[in-house]
Write a protein that binds this DNA or RNA. Sequence first.
RNA 1: GGUCCCAUCGUCUAGUGGCCUAGGACACAGCCCUUUCAAGGCUGCGGCACGGGUUCGAAUCCCGUUGGGACCGCCA
Length: 436
Amino acid sequence: METVRVRFAPSPTGALHIGGAHTALFNWLWARRMGGSFVLRIEDTDRQRSTEAFEKTILAGMRWLGLDWDEGPDCGGGFGPYRQSERLDLYRRYAEELLEKDLAYRDGAAIIHRIPQDRTILFEDIVYGSIEIKSETIKDTVLIKSDGTPTYNFAVVVDDHTMAINYVIRGEDHIINTPKQILIYDALGWELPHFAHLPMILGEDKKKLSKRQGATSVYDYRDLGYIPEGIFNFLALLGWSAGDDKEIFDRHEATALFDLAKVAKRKAVFDMKKLDFVNQEHLKRLDPIRKLDLVRPFWEAIGLDSRLVDDGYLLRSLDLLEGRGQTLKEMAAYSDFFLSFDPVKERYDGSDISEAIKARLRPFFEALLAIGNWDHDAMAELARQWAIDKGLKLKDLAMPLRWALTGRKVSPGIFEVAVHLGPEEVRRRLAHYGLI
RNA sequence: GGUCCCAUCGUCUAGUGGCCUAGGACACAGCCCUUUCAAGGCUGCGGCACGGGUUCGAAUCCCGUUGGGACCGCCA
């Protein structure tokens, strides 16, 4: 059985966007599933718009997502070079061959493929099934542009063949290009690869995902606080299902289950709400140490220096969040009061608690601070007893405490918060609001 | 306009002729838990675009209609 060779061939004219990442992901999945090779090729024949900087961010974006490749411009391989701009001789050579066979003709400096008439091109797409098109509906196609560089349709065929790519997996928008490319394979006498087209990803307005819709590159999502595991999982769900109602999985599980034949035909809408959910599920499964490292930059972004705080304390702070937060950004925001009293003071001035109420609560808070064993159960018991004695509800005590310690009306269990902050810090915050 | 593709809850999907009074997930609503919000548990809402066939039987096969989309560059 032949060894699977697939490729992802981005053009370095922008960052790695969601659509590209989706295509790269499915190629990667197929390569890893089949024990094949995943090749990265840079399609930089558009000299105007291609830049080295974009090439770098695309590679970095793929690494961030965890899509490692076996051959590429940075690591080489047996079928290089891996940038089209470095393969110009190759395209020229095969264009000459077509010219000699009289299957192409010149027009100025360009070379143009003469499309045969009365041919029916039929191919079997792994996802879409058999597709048929008549050759007379195809116009003669440019192979080599006047500036000497190859067009996409020519370069892709030459590269895929010479790089021994046997599965061409790409977006559905390329179905229409496939017959033109098949004609080139035929003209050159080359064997066809398998074709598998993937459904496109749409924005929430059901239009093709574009820059107008805000976040579009994978880095935008990273900066919003999504983690690679979440994006990976969510993207894999667009156009494919693992079966058995399994929707949350890691890359290893996905690899074991993936099957190109199970890919859906229908276009999929990129639903942020579902992304949030999937991301949250992966956040919950994250190793604590890694989670801490991932949250740090988001604390920093809101002016909190986590390096000033003990790691053990930080670890426990995140632990107390217990599933709260769908992104790293939210986790950082929800836990800010653990790192500093400043944000609490900024958002809460204590003016909603009257002097009368403060006077009534002071004895309770004094008793709380005087508690023998500084733990959750002791505090909860004290509060419960106090509330009963004074004819109050537990929340009459818990809410003012929550406001004073966190500056918010929502937080993790407030006694757990108090335990974690420690008696000195609790005293400081209560004193600030005149509650002791 | 031409060529090609698609069509199951709002969204992602399961479903490949009988297991479907169409299953799951997100979202939404309600309930439970509860010091708040989450998390978790339970319940509910909600769909085979339409019309013809084929068949004992169709979400599944065929045809048509309608609706979406892609492409029609010396961009990729």
